[in-house]
Design a protein around this nucleic acid. Structure first.
Lengths: 135, 135
DNA sequence: TTAATCCCTATCGGAATAGTAGATTTAATT
DNA sequence: AATTAAATCTACTATTCCGATAGGGATTAA
């Protein structure tokens, strides 16, 4: 299941991408428009800022705005930043690999092989989709 | 992330599919071979029996065995029985559909549209793979 | 100076996960 | 018939994670 964090994050990014210009939008504005708990959204936007997708402006009439062009915000990156690994098991993860301690031979493991294919099929979609596709 | 329940379930099914004949295998045997907590495995095998994939025999020299041919045990069904919905959000689930209460228009929702494609790509793999592929 | 806004840390309740314990039922073997 | 080994069923527990909340602190435009 997708966490609400990721769900809200994608919605917020879409909202920002739909803005005509790149002037800062307040958290409260997005929170109301997308009916997201404001405090929760706050922490999500902070994460996205740290990852380099968003910029922010402090103080009065501050807010968040896209740093990159929507074409260059690939959904796989959004997922990795907010949700974590794409793979459903650590032993097939590209960016968060971890060996199964109970698995003597990955090549012979049915779970490993199945999830490898699932991962690849997901990546095919997520590597292709960008924020621009949702404007 | 895939739950251990599903992971163990797939491993146990694979183990049973690899047996030459269809005589019952004890839980303890599978549990040792695959290093799975026996009691936990117990409840998993019970679930798989109720779903019709496994048969069981009680009493001495009892155990679990495959009911169907490995070719007819499709991984998408295993996943649905043990893990639940394939879709990452309920609003794109085929078997467990639920409307998002915060989403006025699914067609216009970026999360919905993205996850729709992810689901389809996953289904393409899971509908195709059967237990027989892992023997 | 003030008010609005981002930034940061801490906490909390509830749900889900993974596993445990023990009693019961069933069936093969002696 | 008694014994034994196995699945079955119910209930419980510990831990972790998620979503949300609370309360300031820092920053900046007006």
């Amino acid at each position: 299941m997708l966490s609400k964090k990721t769900k809200y994050g994608i919605k917020a990014l879409t909202y920002l991408a739909k803005q005509e210009n790149r002037i800062p939008v307040q958290i409260s504005t997005i929170s109301k428009s997308e009916s997201i708990s404001q405090k929760f959204l706050e922490s999500i936007l902070l994460t996205l800022r740290k990852s380099g997708m968003l910029g922010s402006k402090k103080g009065k009439s501050g807010g968040y705005y896209l740093l990159k062009d929507p074409n260059n915000i690939v959904m796989v990156e959004v997922m990795r930043v907010l949700e974590g690994p794409i793979a459903l098991v650590p032993c097939v993860s590209l960016n968060f690999y971890e060996k199964c301690h109970d698995c003597p031979d990955e090549k012979a493991c049915s779970v490993h092989n199945l999830m490898l294919e699932v991962r690849d099929s997901m990546l095919k979609v997520l590597n292709d989709k960008t924020l621009a596709d949702f404007i």
